[in-house]
Write a protein that binds this DNA or RNA. Structure first.
Lengths: 166, 166
DNA sequence: GTCCATGCAAACCTTTTGCACTATA
DNA sequence: TATAGTGCAAAAGGTTTGCATGGAC
């Protein structure tokens, strides 16, 4: 396990979920769970496959996708989409169960943050619309501190003043 | 034009953008722009193609994608991703320039709302992290009023009590 | 022994690209 | 007339599926 954080409690929880569902607890499912729970990152399927390979485990991509589907259904793992054209996965049982993301448009770095206000907005807006919320997603896109001090500039390409000729 | 709202001012703006960029203003680009600006919906590429076809216009998908890319670059149109596996597009020059989305997990209905608080959160969180925000995205997923009164239930499938055996 | 999972490859879906031809400016 | 756009089809990239084999319970 190469010095990654201990993921065994979470893997055990996943095993319990599988048993609750009457599904076999297989080597491959545990291996995928270990990688996801053992990383603080938002992993792509490719990255998960790479970590498994570096541990000497050859698990087919289809199996990884199927294991991730179960992990998401167990609610132990969340599926993320930062608009990169593929999905990422993160475990949801860290100290910060619900958090939002700051995403750098230049280097793709992702910073997490929490905001109680978002929950208030979710509740208020939902009440106003008769909506029953189950989850929300708040993402802020822009330039991270590193890229800003490195002098990276966002190049606005839109109309100089769209509204003026309406 | 089939009784859709008048989209010509926006199409003219798009034409101005194209000229500013030294790009030709073609029939196809104007036709795609007309469809997007003429609809209050969040349209997929398939839906745009269908509307064009019903107007008797046969425009290749590749051209639609290329026109949408220009519309997004002009900042007159926003690209949306509700996790359906494909993108949607909406015009950004309506009365509500920046808004968030309530998305029904059962019928996929999308309701828009505005929240000044989100802008405050964006500013505060960004300041705290030295982040330079350019845009944000807040989506609340759940059950819309119609589906709730229709008796639809969200079926929680996760672990009965994940945390208890950690 | 039954049932489900795995692995591989093929299929799938959306989006992008290459290229011969056509239209804009 | 030069330059860029269009349309078609093929390719690309991520994800899903079919099927024969192998493993969990």
């Amino acid at each position: 396990m190469k010095g990654r954080p201990d993921s065994s409690p979470f893997v055990r929880l996943f095993g319990r979920f599988l048993r609750e569902q009457g599904l076999p607890v297989t080597h491959q499912r545990e291996a995928v769970a270990e990688v996801v729970f053992g990383s603080g990152e938002h992993l792509s399927v490719d990255e998960i496959e790479r970590v498994l390979r570096s541990d000497g485990q050859h698990i087919g991509k289809a199996t990884i996708y199927r294991a991730l589907d179960l992990l998401v259904r167990s609610k132990l793992v969340a599926e993320l989409d930062f608009g990169e054209g593929f999905k990422r996965y993160e475990h949801r049982l860290s100290a910060d169960p619900i958090h939002e993301h700051l995403i750098c448009l230049n280097c793709n770095a992702v910073t997490e943050f929490q905001s109680d206000e978002v929950h208030r907005i979710e509740a208020m807006v939902s009440a106003r619309h008769g909506f029953r919320p189950t989850r929300h997603k708040l993402e802020i896109y822009g330039l991270c501190q590193e890229c800003t001090v490195a002098g990276v500039e966002v190049t606005p390409e839109g109309l100089t003043c769209p509204i003026e000729t309406v």
